[in-house]
Write a protein that binds this DNA or RNA. Structure first.
Lengths: 228, 228
DNA sequence: CGCCTATTTGATCTGATTCAAACAATGTGG
DNA sequence: CCACATTGTTTGAATCAGATCAAATAGGCG
C-alpha cells in the first residue's frame, strides 16, 4: 500500500538510484543478502517462493508506491524472490540511508513499521483466501483486492484497472492450475461480474463480486480518505 | 518468535496487567479497536478469521513470548480474532505505554518492527504451504515449524514438544478437513516420522519430516545462536 | 460413572488437476 | 507489412486428492 504524501516526500529526498527493468526479470532473489532495498515507482511486480519440486508460489503483488523488500532492512537474508511482471521503474536506496532516515525521523520509522503491519494483514487474508475458498471465490477475492489497491493509488479509471497478470500467474498466486483459473474466470464473466480482455480488467458488478469473493476491505486498513 | 532477553527486560519494566485466561476463549475479536496489546507469557493461542459461511481459518499459532496483536499499535481495528488454545497467562500493556517506550528507546521500536517482519515471513510461508503442498506435506511442514519455534524458546524436550492443538484445529490452520488431517497424521506415523499421543508430539525423524514437508528454516530468520 | 470432546474408520462424491491439443494474440525480423 | 515464433488463452477428457456424510470408538474430566 502507498505511503502518505509526506513520507513519499522524505523518501524522495533520499539518495536513490533509478533503474528501468524489463518484464519477467528477478530484481532480487531468495537467499540474497542485499545492502539496499527498492521502491516500485512504476509497473507491477510480485514476490514468490520456489518449492523444491520447482513450482512457483506468488505470495504478493506489488504496485507503484510499494516497498517489496523492506524486510531486508532488518532481516539479512531474503526468504522470497521479487520479479517484474511488466517493465518497471524501480528506485533503489541503501539500507544505510534508510536506517539513518529512521533514526533521524522516528515518524518515518513508524510509517515503515505500519507499512509492514499492513503487508502482514494482506498475507493473513491470502492465507484465508487460498485455504478455504473455492476457485471462483478465490479469484473474485483477488480481483477485488487488486481493484481496491489500484483505486487507492489512483490507477483505476472508473471501473477499469490495468491488469497485466497472466492466468498462469493468477494460478501461481491462488494455488490453482492455469486451466482452472481460465474456467473460473469464464464463470465470473458469464455471471456479469467482470470483463477481462487484453490487459484491462473491468469490474462490472463490484458489489456482486465482493459477495462471490467474500471480500471485505477491512483487512486493507484503509484510512477513510483513501476509499469512498 | 521470542524477543531478545534485553528487549524482554525492557518489556518487563512496562506497566502491565496479567490475566489468566482459560482454554478456548477469545482474547480480542476481529473488528475490536483495543487500546492495549498483549504478550503471551504462558500457553498456546491462535489468530483466526471467520468467513461469511462460518468457517474458521487459523492464520497463526502463538507461543510464549509472542505478541499476537502487536499490529493494533498502528492499525486501529483488528482484522483477526485471537483465541486461547490452552489455559494462558497473558500480559496486557497499553498502546500508550508501548508508544512511549518506542519513542524513548528506538532500539525497541526496531525490535518490534523486526518482529513484525518475521511474522510476515511466516505468513508468506503459510501461503505457500496451504496453496501448493499436499495434505501430508502441509502437516509435516507445520509440525516442523512448531517444533523449531518451540525449540528456540526452550520448550522442546529433546525430540518432544507439548502439542495441545487438536486435529480439527490443524485442519482449520491448513485448510483441510479434520477427517483428512487424521488420515494424513496416520501416514506420518506409519512413515515413522512422528508419534503424537495425548498432547505430546515426538519428532522421530526430523530430517525425514523436513523432506516430506519441504521445510527449510530460512524463513524463520533464526539467529545462529538460536538454532544449532 | 457418565458426559463431552476428540479421534478414528468407512463409503461416496466432487472440485480441481493433469495431459493434450487447438486457437488467438502479440511481437520480431526480414 | 507479412511470415513466423512465442506466449497466452481456451476446450475436452480422464483421473485423483481431498471433502462430505455418517457412525463407531476412545479419552478426559467433573
Amino acid at each position: 500500500m502507498a505511503l502518505s504524501p509526506g513520507d513519499q516526500q522524505a523518501i524522495n529526498d533520499l539518495p536513490i538510484r533509478i533503474a528501468e527493468i524489463r518484464a519477467g526479470q528477478d530484481i532480487v532473489r531468495q537467499g540474497d543478502r542485499p545492502s539496499r532495498m527498492c521502491f516500485i515507482i512504476d509497473g507491477f511486480t510480485c514476490s514468490y517462493k520456489m518449492s523444491t519440486d520447482g513450482r512457483r508460489q506468488i505470495v504478493s503483488f506489488h504496485l507503484p508506491g510499494d516497498a517489496p523488500d523492506l524486510q531486508s532492512v532488518h532481516l539479512p537474508s531474503l526468504d522470497i524472490s521479487i520479479a517484474t511482471i511488466t517493465p518497471c521503474r524501480i528506485a533503489f536506496v541503501t539500507h544505510e540511508a534508510i536506517r539513518y532516515l529512521c533514526e533521524k525521523q522516528p515518524k518515518i520509522a513508524d510509517a515503515f513499521w505500519r507499512y509492514t503491519l499492513l503487508d502482514a494483514a494482506i498475507y493473513r487474508e491470502w492465507i484465508a483466501n487460498v485455504a478455504q475458498r473455492s476457485a471462483v471465490s478465490r479469484l473474485a477475492h483477488l480481483l477485488c483486492e487488486m481493484f481496491v489497491r489500484l483505486a487507492v493509488i489512483g490507477d483505476a479509471n472508473r471501473d477499469k484497472i490495468p491488469f497485466p497478470i497472466t492466468q498462469s500467474e493468477l494460478g501461481e498466486a491462488t494455488g490453482l492450475s492455469s486451466v482452472h483459473v481460465n474456467r473460473s474466470l469464464q464463470e465470473l464473466r458469464k455471471g456479469g461480474y467482470i470483463s477481462l480482455t487484453g490487459r484491462t480488467l473491468s469490474i462490472l458488478n463490484f458489489h456482486g463480486l465482493t459477495d462471490v469473493g467474500d471480500f471485505n476491505t477491512e483487512y486493507l486498513h484503509l484510512k477513510p480518505i483513501e476509499w469512498v
